[in-house]
Simulated assay, not measured.
Amino acid sequence: MMNRLKAALAASAVMLAPVFAAPALAETELIFNSYLPPHDELYQIAIRDFAAAIEKESAGGIKVTIPDTSLAPSDRQYEMVRDGIADMAIVSTGGVPQLVTLNKIGDLPFNSPSARAASIALWETYNTYFLPFDEFKGVKVLSTNVLPGRQILSVGKLQAKTVADLKGAKLWSPPGALSEAVKKLGAVPVNSEFTDLQEYVTKGTVDAMVMAPNSAKGARVLEYVTGMTQIPGGLGSLSFAVFISQERWDALSPEEQQAIQRAADGLPARTGAAADEVLAKLAPEMAKVPTENLEGAQLDEFTTLLQARIDEWKERAAKKGLSDPDEVLTFYRDVLAREAKASGS
């Protein structure tokens, strides 16, 4: 009898062992969607590393799942989170034009001398001035970032040394702010999916592209670049926001919220610095490309025309209720100057 009892207990112990040996499961799962390719530095820092940091800061209490494929097109990330399909996502500010005006300060000409400085400037400006306007309705913004300033990369015979050189030229550019900047210079914006850019370049459909060299590298068109016209701070840029559903956020415990906020601390700077690093690695390759660094009278000509883009933003921001857009623009640029001084650039 005793032997049979011992055998039964031993069998029970074997059956229960995996249960007791298994690690504790995370209590909360967050679905963090991404439409970006894994090699993109924005994906690596603002999504992959951020997700890992959330799990670490929560001591495993939160599990962040990144789907293998995007749960919605790139221009539907905001709606996807609002509809509860995913909990978190990243969206281009230009992807929600019907909602967001104020954060587009990061997309303006001359406002991204470095991605790190611009990302910090946008985050501080958002929290100081824009947060009360709740433009990102239904979600909580956890981080913002700005890409390096977009430049004019010629892919043919075009030599854009003056505004007159650009008259009637066909410039590939993302729709929205950058296309509007192209129009101000008298050129013709050509829009397409990023994946179609190589075909547009190789077939001579465009004379130039509005982008940074690292983006051209990612699109596999950098080898076709024949010249670069460089504008201090860029012809404009692209800004992004990382966010979580407000409903999902409110359902988290205070400890879980604090863990996410700790993970997000410094994320704008890290994301921007990663973009700058990728761009810097291309410096030896870009040194072989004839470059026109606009300055003096040349730059003044471009500045005069592009000022209209800044004035348009100020007008729209005032209609949103921003009491002093000039004060906000000065604040943003003061942060840029502070960060440039801190980095020694």
Rank of each mutant, 00 (worst) to 15 (best):
K6A: 13
A11W: 09
A11K: 05
L16D: 04
A17V: 10
P18R: 07
A21C: 10
I31F: 02
I31K: 06
F32Y: 15
H39V: 12
E41M: 14
Y43L: 05
I45V: 15
I45C: 04
A52Q: 14
E57H: 08
G60D: 06
V64L: 03
S70W: 00
S74R: 05
M80C: 15
R82V: 09
I85W: 00
A86S: 12
A86Y: 01
D87I: 04
V91Y: 00
Q98C: 00
L99N: 13
L102F: 03
K104D: 11
P109S: 06
S112W: 02
A115D: 04
E135M: 03
F136S: 10
K140Q: 14
K140W: 00
L142D: 01
T144N: 15
V146F: 05
P148I: 07
P148K: 10
V155W: 09
Q159S: 13
K161F: 09
V163P: 07
L166H: 11
A169R: 15
K170W: 06
W172I: 01
V182C: 02
K184F: 13
S192C: 07
S192D: 07
F194V: 12
F194I: 10
T195F: 03
D196W: 01
M211W: 01
M228Y: 01
Q230P: 00
Q230S: 12
I231H: 13
S237H: 10
A241N: 12
V242Y: 06
V242L: 10
I244K: 01
R248Y: 08
W249H: 10
D250P: 03
A259E: 07
L267G: 05
R270K: 15
D276W: 06
L279Y: 10
L282I: 08
A283L: 06
K288L: 11
K288T: 14
K288M: 10
V289N: 03
V289D: 05
L294Q: 04
G296Y: 06
Q298N: 14
Q298D: 14
D300P: 00
T303A: 15
E312S: 14
E312N: 13
W313D: 07
E315W: 02
A318R: 13
G321D: 11
L322C: 10
F331Y: 15
Y332A: 07
Y332L: 05
V335M: 03
R338S: 08
E339Y: 01
G344S: 09
G344H: 08
